[in-house]
Design a protein around this nucleic acid. Structure first.
Length: 705
RNA sequence: AGGCACGUAGCUCAGGGGGAGAGCACUACCUUGACACGGUAGGGGUCGUUGGUUCAAAUCCAAUCGUGCCUACCA
């Protein structure tokens, strides 16, 4: 009997460091590119290269790690592919802020130097998130770590772009897009966050060019009137039959614009008169196409009024709004101001009010790709779990619009398109062209835009495995077994991976999509820096140990409900880790040798009972993990370890262990104890890898991992 | 405007046609050689409201109230 097998209290820090180093050294997370074993694969949702670990990452990666370790325990050939995302706008913003602090900007630096600077920043900070994932215990195959701007992945991006272009699924067009004047780039529809604000509805009179009166239009953005090219009314609106004139004078300008009829106009809204600003409103843009109206761009890409705005040129758009209202007021054309709640789009990266703007951008024709992505889920090739998200997935894909993929930033994959200066030919190619195929000119200028970050992320499941080459890795691990992610990137990422995966690999990128909840604070608020309610996972790990933290996350990861995180809870599960530690400590006082053979008869009642409970919890855990009900598995283990194994079994066998019985009964009990402890450690390992590993190696007869 | 989810013990939540549960908090007792990050015993809820289906409803259905979130081009 000895008590020095395990220290009295569990010391996570030392144990965690030691074991993680051991696992890495032994290559235990390494996947075999070719193997007879069953494959199991997951690609990590690549965190932003410049990011730091937050609670969302923690939950996301712990759940993936549980799946991977569980499969490894079962003998599967497991690939957990790690990597990071270059996060175009977000990363560029960070570096631009640094430059601003140094009193310079990217234009001073020039494109090449700026990009170098970003790469440098990536070198400095790119390792942080990876090391933090390791502290979580993440068992990724680190030797395969990828980055969305790796050479290989960039080649995949180019290949995809060129092929889609040749298939007519990528095109360039003049379109109304969302423009962020702060980030100075186009945004996809998804990248716009709508927020309800208290605003005003201004009623403005546009006088007829002949006769009395005019048409009153209503708008929330009066400054856009400077870009109006028509006034629209509903053809059935009797108020506007037999007008004295078919033209109105656009106030504050010397322009005359036509009155058009379009059924889009809602007769019940305002006065039934709609100002049409094709360059600055998506609906107006559509109307303008139907009626062949010109577009006048009154607001520039920098958020200031253009020359088209006449005397207002150069003004900030919101300054201009005030000025326009004042001038209209003076001319007696501002008839009414109503309060109005409506939603205004903001840039998801910087929060600035987005300006719809007409410009030439690149698009992916989404419909054909979306149809197949829907079919795959409908036919069960990919399961979305919990299935309530299927509906959301379908809703979005059914109403999908073309995906604007060009961004006017510098950090990202530059679009592989060139224009011939001499003949205007557009060239899209894998390799940088030397001369124009049409006129042989060497004056070729590459498109300056880069691709939306999500374009490269959409290829992640196969680009990380070496596509477009036909690699053994792809053969073994594609389609991946599961994708684990939060719902907030269901459209951004999951749906697009489905579209690209099906198109290029002819098979879905994953069999299961498990959508987990968001981690919130104690009050259920989203954690954000501005609210100051962020709980740093690393701090929690420092204070309570990784295992306690992991178990807390797993225990609260009930499907369909957000996880409210607080230190108090982690503390509770630290008690559990300690309980397990001490149960092991007690057991090891008696288990001084391997006892693998459980006698087939003569077992005591407690022995038989705990074995039956063990088998039951084994089934529950297996079922829980297989169905992504991590909380059920964790809950069952908690209950079993504490209230069955510790409270009942260990207490019940104390008399036997403490000697007063015959040797064969004692041996029988020891063999049961040995077995139960061993199996329990295996069951617990995916959840709490460090403490179980530490105990495992003290248990006689369980050398190796 | 549509959609989704959620309202169960003081708090956080699991459960899901027939015993109302867990953790934390609380009360009393226990410094018993695994563990006070512990043990034993205990208090506490008419499972949002109202109807319906059923022999039976916290559990299914409908309505209603409340909360949160997502999608959306009504200026």
């Amino acid at each position: 009997m000895s008590t020095d097998l395990l220290d009295k209290g569990y010391e996570p820090q030392e144990v965690e460091q030691r074991w993680y180093a051991f696992w890495e050294k032994e290559g235990l997370f390494r996947a075999e590119a070719e193997s007879d074993r069953k494959s199991f694969s997951i690609v990590i949702p690549p965190p932003n290269v410049t990011g730091v670990l937050h609670m969302g990452h923690a939950l996301n990666n712990v759940l993936q790690d549980i799946l991977c370790r569980y499969r490894r325990n079962r003998g599967d050939n497991v690939l957990w592919m790690p990597g990071t995302d270059h996060a175009g706008i977000a990363t560029q913003n960070v570096v631009e802020r640094q430059l601003a602090a140094e009193g310079t900007d990217r234009h001073d630096l020039g494109r090449e130097q700026f990009i170098e600077r970003v790469w440098r920043w990536r070198e400095e900070s790119g390792g942080a998130i990876i090391n933090q994932l390791k502290r979580l215990g993440a068992s990724c195959d680190w030797e395969r770590e990828r980055f969305t701007m790796d050479e290989g992945l960039s080649r995949a991006v180019r290949k995809v772009f060129v092929q889609l272009y040749e298939e007519g699924l990528i095109f360039r067009g003049d379109y109304i897009i969302n423009w962020c004047p702060r980030c100075d780039t186009a945004l996809a529809d998804l990248e716009v966050e709508h927020e309800e604000v208290d605003a005003h509805l201004y009623h403005i009179l546009y006088p007829f060019t002949a006769g009395e009166g005019g048409i009153t239009v209503a708008t929330t953005r009066p400054e856009t009137m400077l870009g109006d090219t028509a006034v629209a009314v509903n053809p059935d609106d009797e108020r506007y039959h037999n007008l004295p004139s078919e033209q109105v004078r656009l106030p504050l300008t010397d322009r005359e614009i036509p009155i058009i009829r379009d059924s889009y106009v809602d007769t019940s809204f305002g006065t039934g008169g709609l100002k049409v600003t094709p360059a600055h409103d998506p609906n107006d843009f559509e109307i303008s196409r139907r009626h062949s109206l010109p577009a006048v761009k009154a607001i520039g890409d920098d958020g200031r009024m253009t020359e088209e705005a006449g005397t207002y040129a150069g003004m900030d758009r919101f300054e201009c709004r005030k000025a326009v209202l004042k001038d209209l007021e003076e001319q007696g054309l501002l008839q009414k101001i109503d309060p109005l709640k409506h939603s205004v789009g903001h840039c998801y990266r910087c929060g600035v009010v987005v300006e719809p703007n007409l410009s030439r951008q690149w698009f992916v024709k989404a419909k054909p790709l979306a149809d197949k992505a829907m079919a795959a889920v409908r036919e069960g090739e990919t399961r979305i779990i919990p299935d309530m998200w299927e509906r959301t997935y379908f809703d979005w894909l059914e109403n999908i619009r073309d995906w604007c993929i060009s961004r006017q930033i510098w950090w990202g994959h530059q679009i592989p398109a060139w224009t011939c200066e001499d003949c205007g030919e557009l060239i899209v190619a894998m390799e940088d062209p030397q001369k124009c195929p049409k006129c042989s000119s060497t004056e070729l200028v590459q498109e300056t835009d880069v691709l939306d970050t999500w374009f490269s992320s959409a290829l992640w499941p196969f680009s990380t495995m070496g596509w477009p080459d036909e690699t053994p890795l792809l053969k073994t691990f594609y389609p991946t077994s599961a994708l684990v992610t939060a719902f907030d990137i269901l459209f951004f990422w999951v749906a697009r991976m489905m579209m690209m995966g099906i198109h290029f690999m002819k098979d879905v990128p994953f069999r299961d999509v498990y959508i987990h909840a968001l981690v919130r604070d104690e009050q259920g608020q989203k954690m954000s820096k501005s609210k100051g309610n962020v709980i740093d996972p690393l701090l929690i790990i420092d204070n309570y140990g990784t295992d306690a933290f992991r178990f807390t996350l797993a225990a609260f990861a009930a499907q369909g409900r957000d996880v409210k995180m607080s230190e108090k809870r982690v503390e509770g599960y630290r008690h559990f880790i300690n309980k397990l530690w001490n149960a092991a400590r007690f057991s090891l006082m008696h288990l001084d040798r391997p006892c693998p053979d459980i006698p087939s008869e003569g077992l005591s009642l407690p022995d038989r009972w705990i074995l039956s409970r063990l088998y039951r919890v084994m089934r529950t855990v297996e079922e829980g993990i297989d169905t992504y009900r991590f909380n059920e598995a964790a809950g069952a283990l908690y209950q079993f370890v504490w209230h069955e194994f510790c409270d009942w079994y260990l207490e019940a066998i104390k008399p036997t262990l403490h000697g007063k019985t015959d040797e064969s009964a004692r041996n029988a009990t020891l063999s049961v104890l040995w077995r139960v402890l061993r199996e329990t450690l295996i069951l617990l390992h995916p959840f709490i890898p460090f403490v179980t590993e530490e105990i495992w190696h003290k248990l006689p007869g369980t050398e190796g991992s």
